[in-house]
């Protein structure tokens, strides 16, 4: 029992509460606890007393249904990309993507690998990049603060871009995932 419908194009009809919504969304970012690459090891210190990201209202959620942010932590192999697409599409709107490390920007030190992607933005819409190999926790916190600022200004609209240009992203995804067996949209 699953739904195979392609999502509707997003419409902008939340004028009244928009200010309050953006403020609440920026101050309560919940992360899907899913480490896609080596950078996931840099997220653990963020919980602990030294960096303490709970003071920004950031928390880890174990399921994509309840979270807002998906962190692509470092290199992304094609096999993981398939799972990332599933997880990303299961997150409820609005959702944001934070990409860590130079591997997500231009391939980084894995630019000539046969199995890792080079440019992440072709396959899923990225809101904030944090560069470095790997970025230290301070840099990740800086990325989060930038994401908060973008949300408050209403500029973090990767999820709208994804729904509007679904065909473009699907085409790029299907090009490199050879055994494509996902439904049209993973609700």
């Amino acid at each position: 029992m699953y739904c195979n419908k392609i999502p509707d194009k997003p419409v902008d009809n939340e004028k009244i509460w928009k200010k309050l919504d953006d403020l609440a969304r920026a101050n309560s970012l919940w992360i899907t606890a899913y480490g896609t690459g080596c950078g996931a090891i840099e997220l653990r210190p963020l919980h602990t007393s030294r960096f303490d990201m709970e003071r920004f209202g950031i928390a880890m959620r174990p399921t994509p249904r309840q979270s807002d942010v998906l962190i692509i932590s470092g290199y992304l192999s094609v096999k993981t990309l398939k799972r990332v697409i599933r997880v990303y599409e299961q997150i409820q709107d609005p959702k944001y993507i934070l990409a860590l490390g130079s591997c997500t920007i231009d391939g980084g030190m894995y630019f000539d690998s046969y199995n890792t992607i080079n440019i992440l933005d072709r396959y899923i819409p990225v809101d904030v990049y944090v560069n470095g190999c790997m970025p230290r926790p301070e840099a990740v916190i800086d990325g989060f603060i930038l994401l908060m600022k973008k949300i408050k200004e209403g500029k973090a609209v990767g999820w709208k871009r994804y729904k509007e240009n679904l065909e473009y992203y699907r085409k790029n995804q299907r090009e490199i995932i050879r055994n494509w067996d996902l439904p049209d949209y993973n609700w």
Binding site: R25, S49, D68
Partner: peptide
């Protein structure tokens, strides 16, 4: 949080979370 030696969230964090959850899309 202070038992862990952290600063911890705001006192009103739960209200913010509740409002955010209430205003999120629920399509499933």
């Amino acid at each position: 949080a202070s038992i862990h030696g952290r600063i911890g969230p705001r006192l009103t964090q739960n209200f913010i979370d509740l409002w955010k959850l209430f205003r999120k899309e629920s399509s499933i």
